[in-house]
């Protein structure tokens, strides 16, 4: 006999689980906190946000954001998006229990193999945004493309392509 279909979960329950997972992923990394990077979520789509801060300046004469900060912002966005995508199925099925994440810790993060950053314009003293696209993600390796902009979505100030080593599944 077929069991009756499970009713859909209330939207708050799903949102709470998604947001708690994302929060655990981002707040656990000291360097992300140091740079002040945040993430905004629309469904499964993530946008990295780097609010401008004096300590991010690399050229005080212009002034411009440090190239290293730009590279780091793109790399962080790539890693978080990659982990998020990798965890998504488990978040949706409820296999990841967001309430226990803080204590148990999250699965390991992907490791950067290499990343190549193109500096298209100088980073202005404004907030910056970034989105990553996973070009290919296999069991062991992933290739990710990231774009960053400031005031205009169409005027990128940097883009990057990176390769990452995927974490091994925990038992």
């Amino acid at each position: 006999m077929k069991s009756p279909r499970r009713p859909p979960e209330p939207v708050q329950v799903i949102k709470q689980r998604r947001d708690a997972t994302l929060r655990a992923l981002v707040s656990g990394v000291p360097y992300i906190q140091f740079l002040g990077i945040r993430f905004e979520r629309r469904g499964d789509e993530l946008t990295g946000i780097l609010p401008f801060d004096q300590k991010l300046i690399g050229n005080p004469m212009l002034p411009a954001i440090h190239g290293g900060v730009t590279a780091a912002f793109l790399e962080v966005t790539a890693i978080i998006t990659l982990s998020w995508t990798y965890l998504w199925a488990d978040v949706e099925s409820g296999a990841i229990d967001a309430s226990g994440l803080e204590e148990e810790g999250l699965p390991r993060l992907p490791k950067t193999i290499d990343i190549s950053t193109d500096y298209l314009r100088s980073g202005l003293p404004r907030d910056a945004y970034a989105r990553a696209r996973i070009v290919r993600s296999g069991r062991r390796y992933a290739s990710v493309q990231v774009e960053a902009w400031q005031d205009n979505r169409d005027r990128l100030f940097a883009s990057a392509t990176g390769h990452f080593l995927m974490p091994e599944k925990r038992d």
Partner: peptide
């Protein structure tokens, strides 16, 4: 372990 981004900042500088 130090974040790759911090190493990027060092390399860029």
């Amino acid at each position: 372990v130090i974040h790759g981004g911090a190493v990027s900042a060092l390399m860029d500088t």
